[in-house]
Nucleic acid binder design. Structure first.
Length: 310
RNA sequence: GGCGCGGUACCCAAGUGGUAAGGGAGAGGUCUGCAAAACCUUUAUGCGUCGGUUCGAUUCCGACCCGCGCCU
């Protein structure tokens, strides 16, 4: 008997992943595992374009609203939680459908991460202090000494990645690139079918513009204001697209129209980055259209059925 | 009609008598625990048009065109 099927629906923002996953879940007795690094937080509703309460009642969703806004859910955290959810769904004989656009999180789930230490906020803040004192080149020079291999791969200006490499090398007391060689821990026990949504770029950008504007008229500013009051403006998820620009407007740094345009721009740039990430993902069945398209939905249902029976 | 200011890439914009900064957009790329993050690469044989001066003009001169402001 062959392994159970795991369906993965990926694509850039606003490409219709939610619509497609909902349709597939409905037709094939599926449950959805979100792969979205921001929708995982509670109380961030409008800016994350989460599926509606009604949709969530109809189809079970996992890893949406799994953490509070003051928490940080890393790729590693996500991977562990998502694997639990997938195994659970599979045990109930339902079809697990992973849907989302967070590339790193998806890779962490499917291919796993290297056996490194988790993030350490104390170490990080110490390193960042040094960086502001002596300049960012200092961190990279330090990395040259601790892990020359990583220093070569990571650009000196890319502070977050340099910091992580240092964090790993220091707290594990051995170079990060050495730990990389121990390999990853891929998800096992499933046959994976990846479906990628790749609508025409121009059409996607128009959709993004429209959706970003709608978020503002649907109350994004008010939602952001409440979150700022409750948790402060420095909590991580408020740094996300849309929320960041809403905060800038609330602080008087941008006019409403400027904030909307900046949010649109941010989402467009993000969609482009997502596509470059996904292009190198293996074995994706690409669809050059939006997931909200009924013909696409039928086609994918058929594809999954065929695959399930093979 | 007169005077003044300006016309440099898709947009904003610096600049020099000796071969066109920078930023944004667009495109491509990187990514091994903050990733809706961060970072990298790339884009004008061309500086409103036509002449002139010069070894050499985007830069100086003249005329013209366009935009803005003021005056009549």
């Amino acid at each position: 008997m062959s392994l159970p099927l795991l369906v993965v629906i990926l694509g850039p923002t606003a490409s219709g992943k939610t619509a497609l996953s909902l349709h597939v879940a409905e037709r094939l007795q599926g449950e959805i595992v979100s792969c979205d690094s921001v929708a995982i937080y509670r109380e961030l509703e409008i800016g994350t374009a989460k599926p509606s309460q009604e949709e969530r009642r109809r189809i079970p969703h996992h890893l949406i609203d799994a953490a509070g806004p003051e928490e940080i859910v890393t790729a590693g955290d996500y991977s562990r939680l998502a694997r639990l959810a997938i195994n659970d769904i599979s045990a109930r004989k339902h079809l697990p459908i992973v849907a989302g656009g967070s590339g790193l999180y998806l890779r962490a789930l499917l291919e796993g991460l290297f056996p490194g230490p988790p993030r350490s906020d104390e170490l990080r803040s110490r390193l960042r202090e040094r960086a502001t004192e002596r300049g960012t080149e200092y961190l990279h020079k330090l990395l040259c000494r601790l892990d020359p291999g990583a220093a070569q791969t990571i650009h000196a200006n890319d502070v977050p990645k340099v910091v992580r490499a240092l964090e790993v090398s220091i707290s594990a007391r051995s170079p990060m690139t050495g730990l990389w060689k121990q390999g990853r821990d891929p998800l096992q026990g499933f046959r994976i079918l990846r479906v990628g949504l790749n609508p025409d770029r121009e059409a996607l950008y128009q959709r993004i513009n429209q959706r970003a504007r709608e978020m503002f008229s649907a109350g994004l500013l008010e939602e952001t204001r409440i979150l700022m009051e409750r948790y402060g403006s420095s909590v991580w998820p408020l740094n996300s697209l849309g929320y960041k620009q809403a905060m800038q407007h609330l602080r008087g740094e941008l006019s409403l129209e400027q904030a909307i345009m900046a949010a649109q721009q941010g989402h467009r740039n993000y969609a482009k980055r997502q596509m470059t990430w996904f292009r190198r993902e293996p074995e994706i069945h690409w669809v050059a259209d939006f997931g909200s398209n009924a013909a696409v939905q039928e086609q994918i249902v058929d594809l999954i059925r065929a695959k399930a029976e093979s």
